[in-house]
Amino acid sequence: MEPRISLITLGVDDLERAYRFYAEGLGFPAHRTEGQDIVFFSTAGTRLALYPREKLAEDAGSRLIGRDRSFPGITLAHNTREKAQVDEILKRAEAAGGEIVKPAQDAFWGGYSGYFADPDGYLSEVAWAEFWQFDANGALVLD
C-alpha cells in the first residue's frame, strides 16, 4: 500500500456557496464539470472535493457513524492504481481494527470503491477508476 490521502471530501449543505468560498474567496483552482454535483480543487499534493452532505453520507453507506452515531461530514480517500488494491486495503484496514462500512463494489461514477471507519469513526474511501492518472509523487491528476 502506498501511504497516500488522495482526496479530502467535505460534505457541504450548499454546493454553490461552498464553491464560491473556496474558488472565489480563497482562490483555489477549481475543476468542475457542468451538471455534476462534485467540485475538485487542486492543492499542493492532496486534492479537496466538495460534495452535497446527504449524497456523501449515502455514498458512504446507510449506517451513519461517528462518536454520536451521526455522519461526520468529511471523508478521506485513498485512490489506488490497481482495482485489486481496493480490496487489499480494505482487508488491511479491517485487520488493523477498522470497520468495513461499505464493502467494495462498482460505483455509480464508473469506478470501484468501498469505505472503512478508523477506530474513532472517521471514514475513508478506497477507490479505483481506470481513467485516473497520478503524477510522479502519487498525487491524483485533475486535468
Rank of each mutant, 00 (worst) to 15 (best):
P52E: 05
F41S: 02
L15H: 03
P72E: 05
V12C: 08
V101H: 03
L90W: 02
D106Y: 07
P103C: 02
G11C: 07
K102R: 15
L76R: 02
F40A: 00
H78C: 07
L56P: 01
E94D: 11
Y51H: 13
Y19V: 07
D118A: 03
G35A: 07
P119D: 06
I65L: 13
L26S: 05
L50Y: 09
R67L: 13
G25Y: 06
D68M: 08
P72S: 04
E99Q: 14
D14M: 07
Q133P: 00
G45L: 08
I100G: 00
R69C: 10
T75R: 08
D87L: 03
E82V: 06
R92C: 04
Q85G: 01
E82N: 09
F108C: 00
I74P: 00
S124D: 00
P3S: 09
L76M: 14
W128I: 01
A60F: 06
A30G: 11
R53T: 09
R53C: 11
F71G: 06
K102F: 04
I65W: 00
D106A: 11
A49H: 02
F41E: 00
W128Q: 03
F108V: 09
F21V: 07
L10V: 09
R63D: 15
E82W: 10
E54C: 02
S124H: 13
Y19W: 14
L10C: 02
S70M: 14
S124G: 06
E2H: 13
G114T: 03
D120W: 09
K55L: 15
S62I: 06
L7A: 00
V39T: 14
P119M: 08
I100E: 01
A107F: 00
R20I: 10
L48V: 08
P52T: 05
D120Y: 10
F40W: 06
A77Y: 03
I65R: 12
D14N: 13
R17V: 12
S42L: 11
L10H: 09
A57P: 04
L15W: 08
E125P: 01
E125V: 07
G25M: 08
T80D: 04
Q36R: 13
K91F: 04
F116T: 01
A96I: 03
W109L: 02
Y51A: 02
G11H: 10
K55R: 15
S70Y: 12
E24W: 07
I8V: 15
A93M: 10
D106N: 12
A57F: 01
G45W: 10
T43C: 12
S6V: 02
F40S: 00
D106S: 10
E82S: 07
G110R: 06
L7F: 14
R32W: 03
A96H: 09
Q85T: 08
H31A: 08
Q85C: 00
E94R: 11
A77T: 13
I100F: 07
T80L: 02
L56H: 06
A117H: 04
R81F: 10
T80K: 01
E130S: 15
T46C: 12
Q36K: 12
W132S: 00
D13Y: 10
